[in-house]
Amino acid sequence: MTRSRILQPLRQSIARPLAQPSRNAFSGSVVARRSMASVDDSAPSEAAKPEEIPPPAALLLQPEFNHLTGKTDEGAVRLPRAVQSLYLQPLRREQTYGVPTCDLQLRSYSVPNLEFFCDFALRAAYYLNLPAFGPVPLPKITERWTVPKSHFIFKKSQENWERITRRRLIQIRDGHPETVQIWLAFLQKHAYYGIGMKANVWEYSKLDVAGQLDGNAKSMQEIVEAKMMQHLGRDKTAGTVQKVQELLESERFRHQ
């Protein structure tokens, strides 16, 4: 691989059309196509196979121009498609029904990191066959602090500090709940420094949800309790009930 090959394909050098109708040219799917509709097994799989559309011009064989010798390298072998696609806008799957299943919010203090990770998340969603939308820039959170530069009496000279949290929203529509979980786990595994993630996940099920929950109640009891102890019920102090009983049975309370 020549030097120019590595240096040349900068993001800016290739046109990145913002709104391209369909770029389903690559069918490098890892997970079989599933959507929210396929949760119900009886439903016929609506998933249409990605149509064969010729790849965009940017991905076609481009003879390399060697900047050192000033010649075009005719015998060059092109980069693999998957690598080429890294220099283009992330590919996206088409939505079928448009039912939102997951809202992922990414937060960071630095824009480049955030943009990079959004890009990564979108690509991961593409290869998992998840229709992803975004990144939607949400309002910035600006926190400001003003501190005196010096001692108390020199109140006149102060300094302003700020911390701006940038937020991006990526929405997954029509995703199979398991695939969405895989996607989230993958993002968590490859979490980037300085980026916080928060996901709201929605699941849709059949009409008899209550019956199903009752059926699962026994087996889920332990897991639920463990989670409750960890994350919920923090407004109540643990052990209060036992303590009340203990107090009411104690000497001082009984001899009245």
Binding site: Y109, V147, W161, R163
Partner: peptide, 19 residues
């Protein structure tokens, strides 16, 4: 407030910058 300013000037507080 004083230690905050010192740490912020050193860049030890992520995301905090002069406004």
């Amino acid at each position: 407030r004083y230690n905050f300013r010192m740490q912020a000037l050193e860049g030890n507080l992520p995301g905090v910058q002069k406004a």
